[in-house]
Nucleic acid binder design. Structure first.
Length: 261
DNA sequence: ATTGTGGCCTGCCCGC
DNA sequence: TGCGGGCAGGCCACAA
């Protein structure tokens, strides 16, 4: 599903849409418009302008518009795919499909010259917003410093995994990236966040960065070393132990009882 | 404030 | 072969 790595791919794709004049908007699904906006309001805000910058914070894609226009915020939920000029920005998406049922098209920006930016989302878990409140998100996991990570974890009784996935504290990690990071770091996802000592936070920080770099290079959150074992009856690829399957932070969690402590 | 839980959305897969 | 239940998880509302 789109976690920060996939949204980063979407951002780079959307870069090719900068500087094109927006001539029309299609927003057939009112549910998909968040923050009380209407299709007409989005049209009024965007038509005649152009996108001038592409940004990402966590899993939120941000497109700034010209003439001090609003920022368009795009969320992809679990199954959202971005498509520019008829080409999907990503090749493979775990839990989603590349079929193109017309009714899955939730939001379209039409450009002068015939191109279009389309958001396709079968399960409707994503959304579109104008001027989303970016400060509701914590620092991006790709750029967070080790001291900042330490303060995010300090004092919290939440399970480590839940804290890392709390987008208000740290933006970008979803279920798969978090399981992979903690598996690599050898840390039990159920441990209280505040129980990590300074060395463990530094280790976690390093493994998180390495995981983002590796999986970014491989092309997706679902391409981790743990992923193929991330199923019922899965065996730890590192030491052969039967993986634990638990619900932590409300999410299905796989971890190794032997080396994640 | 913090933390946990349930619901929303819908396609897919498994077992009968 | 068709059908129904369970599952996937990002995000939000809500409760304690």
């Amino acid at each position: 599903m789109p976690e920060m790595l996939e949204v980063e791919v979407y951002r780079r794709a959307a870069h090719a849409a900068l500087g094109r004049r927006i001539i029309d908007i299609s927003a057939p699904d009112a549910w998909f418009l968040k923050g009380g906006i209407t299709a007409a309001a989005v049209g009024d805000a965007l038509i005649g302008r152009e996108f001038v910058a592409d940004r990402r914070r966590g899993k939120l894609l941000l497109l700034d518009t010209s003439d001090d226009g609003p920022t368009l915020g795009l969320r992809f939920g679990m199954t959202g795919i971005l498509e520019l000029d008829g080409v999907d920005a990503i090749e493979a998406l775990q839990y989603s499909t590349h079929r193109r049922n017309p009714e899955w098209e939730r939001f379209v920006v039409h450009f002068d010259g015939g191109g279009a930016l389309r958001l396709r989302d079968p399960r409707r878990l994503g959304g579109v917003e104008l001027d989303p409140d970016e400060d509701r998100l914590g620092p991006d996991a790709g750029t967070v410093g080790v001291a900042e990570l330490r303060s995010i974890l300090a004092g919290s009784t939440s399970p480590l995994k839940a804290r890392l996935m709390d987008q208000a504290k740290l933006a970008g990690l979803g279920n798969l990236l978090t399981d992979e990071t903690l598996w690599r770091a050898g840390l039990d996802p159920a441990r209280q966040s505040r129980s990590l000592d300074s060395d463990e936070v530094a280790l976690l920080h390093g493994e998180m960065k390495r995981t983002l770099k590796d999986l970014g290079k491989r092309g997706g959150s679902h391409l981790g070393d743990l992923q193929q074992a991330r199923q019922r009856g899965g065996i730890c690829p590192r030491d052969g132990a039967a993986l634990d399957r638990r619900t932590i932070g409300g999410r299905t969690t796989y971890s190794c009882p032997v080396h994640q402590i």
